[in-house]
Design a protein around this nucleic acid. Structure first.
Lengths: 172, 172
DNA sequence: CAAGATACGTCAATATGGCTGACATAAATT
DNA sequence: AATTTATGTCAGCCATATTGACGTATCTTG
């Protein structure tokens, strides 16, 4: 009675019969679903959503990020960012400073209040990660990092990705 | 000039100073961003969004899934599912069959058309996964699976998760 | 059998977080 | 001086999620 994968497989072969990585596809779905879910309850208490989390997270982690950089990282439009960013500014989680070299730029910095929120949320996610790597040796954890890094598009890296990958561009 | 992680770390220590797994947190964000992005362009050609993808994917993979099961897996309300499911039914990607034991149930099955779409999308994601595990030996790939499985909540597994984890419940 | 619970569908209203397009301002560049 | 760039903002639209209420068919139970 319980639904099983591929129970009709023989009479309805999939269009392209090459080996598909169903297991990893679904593990990624569930792992990410629960991973981001950790923060949701906490965010709700602050009246924020996942969009706020993404913004305040990257601003905290990469102080002095420009608005344009943030747009690259989050892959959203400035209009979408605008509403969320304005709330975080108004409520004192983020401050703007005019760029020294280029006074058009608004460099973004998290306040202590912002850092505290990000730290709390990162703590929840870190707990999950630590639970997950229990029993995996350091080499195995490095394999997981290698896998995740290799899952990321490198053809047009933004500023944050350059930092993560060591500041070297893929093509050049 | 480039923003660097923790450049203000010394004068503003985070609230909880325990080791946070910033690297894995961000790798998961970028990896999932690009992973789900693979399907977006293809979906647009069909006039569908990510919500449609999730539904047709799990219906294809677990034929005979009940509506209630799908709600558990996707963690959305029946009202949200309703519109998306109706479109997939109307356009012939999914069919419903009345349950044999319980005639209130509407068991969901993908049509050939639905399977073809899911196969195409899974192919794109499989390509990315195959690229990512190039150079990782079979033991390493199994480590990646182990990690992803351990990232998933097991306290209240739905039907699909039970299938993925071998049909055994955590508590009982 | 009657009553209640369950599975599903649907209507209505609302919120979040994306989008496009247009336009404004200040500051840098040419 | 003219143009480009970085940012902000107004207005409206779309996709996807929510809660609450209600209807109907069907199964379960007293």
């Amino acid at each position: 009675m319980a639904a099983q994968p591929d129970s009709r497989g023989s009479d309805h072969p999939p269009a392209a019969a090459r080996d598909l990585r169903w297991d990893i596809i679904e593990l990624l779905f569930f792992a990410y679903r629960d991973f981001v879910g950790d923060a949701d309850q906490e965010l709700e208490a602050f009246g924020f959503g996942r969009a706020h989390h993404r913004v305040i997270h990257f601003v905290t982690r990469y102080p002095g990020l420009k608005v344009a950089d943030l747009l690259d990282v989050l892959r959203i439009t400035k209009q979408s960012l605008g509403r969320v960013l304005k709330q975080l500014l108004d409520e004192g989680y983020i401050v703007q400073k005019t760029g020294n070299n280029d006074r058009r730029q608004r460099l973004l910095y998290a306040t202590l209040k912002g850092e505290a929120l990000v730290g709390k949320l990162a703590g929840l996610q870190t707990d999950r990660i630590n639970r997950a790597i229990t029993g995996i040796d350091p080499a195995g954890v490095e394999t997981v990092r290698t896998f995740l890094r290799a899952m990321i598009d490198r053809d047009d890296p933004d500023k944050v990705l350059e930092a993560i990958f060591g500041g070297r561009k893929t093509r050049e």
